[in-house]
Amino acid sequence: MEASYDFETDENPETVKEYLINPRNLIKYVPNFKDLKETEDGWELYVHWLFTIKLKIIRIVSNDEISYLIKKSEGMIKLNANLRFIILPTKNITKVKLVFFYQGPFESFAKRQADEFYKRGAKIFQEDLKKKTVVQTNEGSEVPLYAMRTILAKKVQKQEIESILEDAMVKSVDKLIVLILSDGKNTVELTFNKGDVTSQKGDVNSLKGEITVIMKAP
Results as ranks from 00 to 15, higher is better:
Ser141Asn: 14
Asn205Cys: 02
Phe106Arg: 11
Leu88Met: 12
Ser182Lys: 01
Thr187Cys: 00
Lys111Asn: 04
Thr150Val: 15
Asp183Thr: 03
Phe192Leu: 06
Ser4Met: 01
Asp174Gln: 11
Lys17His: 01
Lys171Asn: 12
Phe117Val: 10
Met215Leu: 04
Asp183Tyr: 07
Phe125Asn: 01
Ile21Lys: 01
Glu189Val: 11
Tyr118Gln: 03
Arg120Ala: 09
Gln157Phe: 14
Ile164Cys: 05
Thr52Met: 10
Tyr46Gly: 01
Gln103Phe: 07
Ala114Trp: 05
Lys78Gly: 10
Lys17Ala: 07
Gly202Ser: 03
Gln136Pro: 06
Asn63Asp: 04
Leu179Arg: 02
Ser67Ile: 06
Lys194Val: 12
Ser67Asn: 12
Pro218Trp: 01
Met215Gln: 02
Val204Ala: 11
Leu83Glu: 09
Met76Ala: 10
Arg24Phe: 00
Asp35Glu: 15
Thr191Val: 03
Pro31Asp: 13
Asp128Gln: 06
Leu50Cys: 09
Phe106Lys: 13
Glu38His: 08
Ile58Thr: 13
Val170His: 12
Leu83Phe: 13
Ile87Asp: 11
Ile57Ala: 08
Asp196Val: 14
Ile57Tyr: 08
Val99Ala: 02
Met76Val: 14
Ser73Trp: 10
Leu176Asp: 08
Glu107His: 02
Asn22Ile: 00
Glu160Leu: 12
Lys54Glu: 13
Glu127Met: 03
Thr150Cys: 07
Lys208Arg: 15
Thr198Lys: 10
Leu165Thr: 12
Ile60Tyr: 00
Ser141Asp: 11
Leu79His: 06
Thr187Glu: 15
Thr9Tyr: 02
Val170Cys: 00
Val30Asn: 11
Leu36His: 05
Val204Asp: 11
Ser206Gly: 02
Lys130Arg: 07
Glu2Ser: 03
Val61Phe: 02
Asp35Asn: 15
His48Leu: 14
Thr150Glu: 08
Tyr68Lys: 04
Lys97Gly: 10
Tyr118Cys: 09
Asp183Ser: 01
Ile177Leu: 05
Gly195Trp: 12
Lys175Ile: 07
Ala110His: 06
Ser199Gly: 00
Val99Cys: 02
Val134Tyr: 00
Glu139Gln: 10
Lys91Met: 11
Ile214Glu: 10
Phe109His: 08
Glu40Lys: 07
Arg59Phe: 10
Asn22His: 05
Val170Gln: 13
Ile180Met: 02
Lys132Thr: 00
Tyr68Phe: 13
Asn186Val: 01
Thr15Arg: 09
Tyr146Asp: 00
Leu45Glu: 04
Thr39Ala: 05
Asn63Thr: 01
Trp49Ala: 15
Asn32Lys: 13
Ala168Gly: 14
Lys91Tyr: 12
Gly75Glu: 07
Lys131Tyr: 04
Asn32Thr: 14
Gly140Arg: 09
Lys130Val: 02
Thr9Asn: 05
Pro144Tyr: 07
Thr52Trp: 09
Val143Ser: 05
Ser206Tyr: 08
Ala3Leu: 12
Glu210Ile: 15
Glu166Pro: 00
Met1Trp: 06
Ser141Leu: 10
Val188Phe: 13
Ile93Cys: 03
Gly104Phe: 00
Tyr19Phe: 01
Arg120Met: 11
Gly121Pro: 06
Ala122Thr: 11
Lys95Val: 06
Thr198Tyr: 05
Ile180Glu: 05
Leu165Val: 14
Asn25Asp: 04
Val204Met: 12
Glu18Asn: 07
Ile77Ser: 03
